[in-house]
């Protein structure tokens, strides 16, 4: 019955909200890195991803630890972006795409029938390859956009505070504070990408997914975003897809390598381990060949 489904949905949401509140209260130091807020852990179990009949990703199981940067690497077509998009239910937006298996954010399966995908996407923010600020909105409005949607009735001063905090969090405040009313699209590429990161963190997500966030940026802007990623992990769980292996080596704590046996075969997770181990003594020859550039 529709009523029952709705009730369950509400219950599911409130549980996630309670978990979020509980996590937000904690401030602990872990593994040498200062953790300002304990974010959430992803548990991916036996996940298979399809585009229509095409089996894109096969049997992926992995745990993505909170307050760490996990890098997904692998050559094009190995399924890493597909896996990333399955973590905030964006995969299913592609017509014909489907997900099998379980993806849990802490203990909540985000694919459970009572879970609202919109709520999942609030908890799991995404930053895309090409900076995509809303072109007609000012820098301020870009950051506040999600707030207006998620928190109706928020006061102007509260909004100002969150916009400032988010822009500071994205290392952009000093550069734009005097021109918050200018169009977001008038900023440089690197600034636009940091604006998108500010927009993503304004709604206080648990996880930030980044799909090649620096591939359209110059080296200086890239390093600025990498520094930012290092800072952000004190508050968020971060998953980054990158083709730049040195970037994976620089920014991530854990690296997961995806590959496919042959063209047309599904992508699979080959090896996942601490980043320094993956880049000094990987366990699998396949990983070794990829990280040392001997593929092709």
């Amino acid at each position: 019955m529709p009523e029952t489904a709705d009730t369950t949905k509400e219950k599911g949401r409130s549980n996630m909200a309670t978990d979020l509140a509980r996590a937000a209260k904690k401030a602990v130091t872990r593994g040498g890195d200062k953790v300002e807020r304990v974010a959430k852990r992803f548990s991916v179990k036996d996940v298979n991803l399809f585009y229509g009949d095409f089996h894109a990703v096969e049997d992926v199981s992995m745990t993505i630890e909170p307050n760490q940067v996990t890098a997904l690497i692998g050559s094009s077509g190995c399924g890493k972006t597909t896996v990333l998009r399955s973590l905030n239910r964006m995969h299913e937006l592609t017509p014909g795409a489907r997900v099998e298996g379980e993806v849990a954010l802490d203990n909540q399966n985000i694919y459970a029938p009572n879970v609202d995908p919109v709520e999942v996407r609030r908890l799991v923010g995404m930053v895309f390859q090409a900076p995509n600020p809303f072109p007609t909105m000012s820098a301020y409005e870009n950051v506040a956009a999600g707030l207006s949607l998620n928190r109706r009735g928020i006061s102007k001063s509260e909004k100002d505070d969150i916009v400032e905090k988010s822009l500071r969090g994205a290392h952009l405040w000093d550069e734009v504070k005097d021109r918050l009313d200018r169009k977001g699209s008038a900023l440089s590429g690197g600034q636009q990408q940091r604006l998108c990161i500010a927009r993503a963190i304004a709604v206080e997500p648990e996880v930030l997914l980044m799909d090649e966030p620096c591939s359209a940026l110059d080296p200086v802007a890239t390093l600025a975003v990498e520094d930012l990623i290092e800072d952000l992990k004190t508050r968020y769980t971060i998953v980054i897809v990158t083709h730049n292996m040195q970037q994976a080596a620089r920014v991530s704590d854990v690296t997961a390598f995806f590959n496919l046996e042959a063209a047309g075969k599904p992508g699979r997770l080959v090896e996942m381990d601490a980043t320094d181990k993956m880049f000094t003594t990987p366990s699998k020859k396949e990983t070794e060949d990829y990280v040392s550039g001997r593929f092709g």
Partner: peptide
């Protein structure tokens, strides 16, 4: 060349 893995060792 940013060597890694066996090359780095």
């Amino acid at each position: 060349q940013a060597p890694v893995a066996t090359d780095l060792r």
